Computed example of a mutant assay.
Amino acid sequence: MNILHIDSAITGEDSVSRKLTAEIVSRLRAANPGAGVTYRDLNTGVPAIDTDWFKAVRLAPANPTAEQQALVATSDAYLREVQDADVLVIGSPVYNFTITAQLKNWLDQIARAGISFRYTEAGPEGLLKGKRAIIVYSAAGTPMGSEMDFASGYLRFMLGFLGITDVEFVAADRLAYDREAGLARAHAAMDRLAA
């Protein structure tokens, strides 16, 4: 088993999502001795896609410049980590009712037509099939699944668009109102996860 462990919180050691993703990865490794883990901390910076990225990655010039080659290499590295993973454990704290900018940038980097998805006569088809995603949803005041939650539905849809349809959530929400209850719900959800 290959595990891709992704964190995106900006709050460092105080991050609830970071603590919970680490615990999930620990449980997966305990149940699957020999599992490999690739760790990616998106808070260290994920380049946003822009016109230069589009010209380098999407248009794929025959003779790319050194700068274009670097942009392609970065995007390829993110995508390769996902392609190589059997399980993705993604920390997704909610900031301003949605996912972090870093996590959105990462999704933009790996959404590559012809590589991670393609358009067919029947509609779009995700090409990253056969993977499982466990998402830690942490929020101070945004209940998961509520009308103000623009994070969980987007993540489920976007991963499904890329072919990852086995998506489970561990929610530590409403932490500003009752932190202990929110953490207890998250740990109960972790206990229900199949290792």
Rank of each mutant, 00 (worst) to 15 (best):
G45M: 07
D7P: 02
M158R: 15
L88G: 09
T98L: 05
D41S: 05
A133I: 12
I115P: 00
R58I: 13
L42R: 03
D52I: 02
A31F: 13
G126R: 11
V170M: 05
L128V: 03
Y95V: 01
S116H: 11
Q83T: 08
A122I: 06
K55F: 13
G130P: 09
E168I: 01
L155S: 13
F150H: 15
T120D: 10
M1N: 13
T165G: 02
A186T: 03
V25Y: 11
E147L: 02
K19Y: 00
K129M: 11
S138A: 10
S152M: 13
D173N: 08
G36M: 10
D173T: 01
T120Y: 09
R132D: 07
D191Q: 12
E147F: 05
L103W: 12
D41F: 02
E13V: 02
R192H: 09
L28I: 05
R80G: 04
T11L: 09
T51G: 07
L4A: 15
T100A: 02
F169L: 10
E121D: 15
R18C: 01
S138N: 02
G126W: 09
A101L: 05
G163F: 07
E180K: 04
A171W: 03
R192N: 12
T11N: 11
A194G: 15
F150I: 00
R58F: 07
L128A: 05
Q68F: 03
T44D: 14
L128M: 10
L128W: 10
S138L: 05
Q69P: 00
V37P: 05
G45Q: 08
N63L: 07
G34V: 01
M144V: 03
M148C: 08
D84S: 03
A70L: 12
R40T: 08
A111S: 15
S15T: 06
V57S: 00
L159W: 13
V94W: 06
I90D: 12
D149Y: 03
N63I: 04
T120F: 02
T98E: 09
A176H: 10
A73H: 13
P64T: 08
A122H: 13
L175D: 08
V82L: 14
Y39N: 09
I6E: 11
R192E: 14
G91W: 09
R40N: 12
